[in-house]
Simulated assay, not measured.
Amino acid sequence: MSWLYLGVAVVFEIAVGIAAGKARGFTHLGWTLATLASGAVATVFLSRALLTFDVGVGYALWTSLAGVGIVVIGALFLSQRLTWRKLLGVAVVITGVVGLNLAGAA
């Protein structure tokens, strides 16, 4: 169940990143509210996941997976350019997430 909680937290953290970008420095009220609400939901589900995960591992998984998700969504839907350097960075992050997960299971 903790993986489900973490997955929901990641989805809402991705929403935070997208909404924060659209909020334009919190000058657009609707996007600002979406940012804050998504952040609150993400934090609630993260805290549920952290009942099982070590805090450091769970938090690192949450932020890393959300970061990769935002990069992918940006490339697919927001016309953001995905260079080989960004792809390399994503690969490094994914490698780190897998390593943390394996280390956390020991």
Rank of each mutant, 00 (worst) to 15 (best):
G39D: 03
W3I: 12
T63N: 08
V55D: 03
G69L: 04
G25P: 01
S38V: 10
N101W: 14
V92P: 00
I14C: 01
N101Q: 15
A75V: 03
F12Y: 05
V97N: 07
T52A: 12
G67V: 04
A49Q: 02
T35W: 02
V16A: 00
A37V: 15
S64M: 10
A40Y: 11
A34R: 11
A19K: 01
A15G: 08
W3L: 14
V57K: 08
R85N: 13
T43E: 00
S79I: 01
V11F: 12
L61P: 00
V44C: 04
A66D: 10
T95C: 14
Y59C: 01
L87K: 14
G67Q: 02
L100V: 05
T35E: 02
T32V: 06
V10M: 02
T32C: 08
M1E: 12
G89Q: 07
T35Q: 09
A105C: 02
L87F: 15
L82W: 11
F53E: 02
A49M: 02
A66G: 12
V92Q: 04
V55L: 14
I70P: 00
L102W: 06
T52H: 14
L33T: 07
F77Y: 13
G39A: 09
V71G: 05
G58S: 01
A60Q: 05
F12N: 03
F77K: 14
V98F: 05
V41G: 10
A9R: 03
I73P: 00
